[in-house]
Simulated scan of single mutants.
Amino acid sequence: MIGLTLDRAVASGAGTVDEVLDAFFADRVQRATAHGDDYTRLWEAARDATAGGKRIRPELALAAYSAFADAGSVAGSLDGSVDAGSVDAVRLAAAFELLHTAFLMHDDVIDHDLVRRGVPNVAGRFALDAIGRGLSTARAHEYGEASAILAGDLLISSAHRLVAELDAPRGIRNRLLEIIDECVFLAAAGEHADVHQAGAAPGEREILTMIENKTASYSFSAPLQAGAVLAGAPADAVECLGEIGRELGVAFQLRDDVLGVYGTAAVTGKSVFGDLREGKETLLIAYARQHDAWSAVAGDFGRADLDDAAAGRLRATIESSGALARVEQLIAARCAGAIDAIAAAGLPARLRDGLSASARDCVERVR
């Protein structure tokens, strides 16, 4: 897992991302009490939605910050106290976790999902609450989805505020806000393209562009670049981290797509029918469509009542068409490209080694 290869505390006393998030939500929940129980529950649901994640984005931001800060001898003072930059780094990392949680909330609404990580998500919690109050199922779902949209909006705004309140010099804060703004901009473009592609039989280029915008930008490139900017890294290194992040992000998402069809539910925590039932337009499907055998199983793809036998036929056809092998080759190529870019970027040794290990994990991970 990427988080395991880059896990490192920034500095003693700087606190952790979870501590920053706990304090943030405690303040928001307390403020919400002045506006009624429902609004308080909305913030409590948003708080709970941040629990249980892999924290990949915060770890990338912290890894980039600590590597360049240590290289510049600015991470800690001689008396052992923690400098403002280290505290800022943890708050910056927390901002990326808020963004991630917000995007998941909105993504669940778009997909009409009511469960996340095995429990009701924000939309699901408020839909169940509405059903308990006697609303119809349709009205309850509308209420749940509206609640999730609002919660996601609040967290996106909060992420911007966390960054705007950093102690860093104005020029660095402005650059960080530009990075946050751009990754939100690109993620929305990618999500919009993803919805547009449903049932549209997109090609390889369209799918890869969607992945770069929707996943790679905010999950990999932006955290790496933001951490480096906060630490005062050279502009050319920041630019290289953007490219490295794109390569890693695409490889990571392609592996997710493979696991979504060929993984084991007990390991991944996701249904192995989900993507096939949803009719998710991944590169596996785009490649499989190019083979004559696809026509025999095309009617099963996207069926809400997809059963074991039909799912097995789809998986077998994807594999026999050569689509699985082609995606595996592309994952390997993207990871190799990332490793080459990492080696050429002149990064601090710890960050170079951690990112290289992460690239290899993209090829080998099973969850």
Rank of each mutant, 00 (worst) to 15 (best):
G232L: 04
A296R: 12
K280D: 06
E191S: 05
E212T: 04
E278T: 06
R47Y: 12
S147R: 02
A316G: 13
V87I: 13
S66P: 04
A9H: 05
Y39V: 05
L347K: 05
Y65V: 01
E97M: 04
L186T: 07
A148Y: 03
D308K: 11
Q290T: 10
A187I: 00
I244T: 08
F220D: 03
A201M: 12
R133A: 09
R57C: 11
A345E: 00
F126M: 03
G118M: 10
D48I: 03
V229H: 02
I318R: 01
V17P: 00
A63K: 00
G337Y: 01
R41A: 10
A251I: 06
S73P: 04
R173G: 06
I318W: 02
L230T: 01
S66T: 14
D111N: 12
V272P: 05
G322R: 09
G53I: 06
S320T: 14
T137F: 14
E243I: 07
L166I: 06
L154D: 11
E191G: 04
V119M: 10
G85W: 00
G203F: 09
R28M: 07
E97R: 02
L176P: 00
A140R: 07
A357L: 12
A332S: 12
G260P: 04
H141W: 04
R161Q: 12
A293Q: 10
I318M: 15
R170C: 01
A286M: 12
S81M: 05
A140K: 01
L254R: 00
A323N: 08
I110V: 15
V238M: 10
A67Q: 05
A95S: 13
N213Y: 11
H106D: 05
K54Q: 14
L314R: 01
A286G: 10
S221A: 15
A293Y: 08
Y287D: 01
F25L: 07
L166P: 01
I131Q: 13
T50V: 14
L347H: 13
L42H: 01
G263Q: 10
G36T: 07
A9S: 11
R289M: 09
A336S: 11
P234M: 11
L351T: 02
R326V: 06
G269W: 10
L150A: 13
L284I: 07
I131M: 13
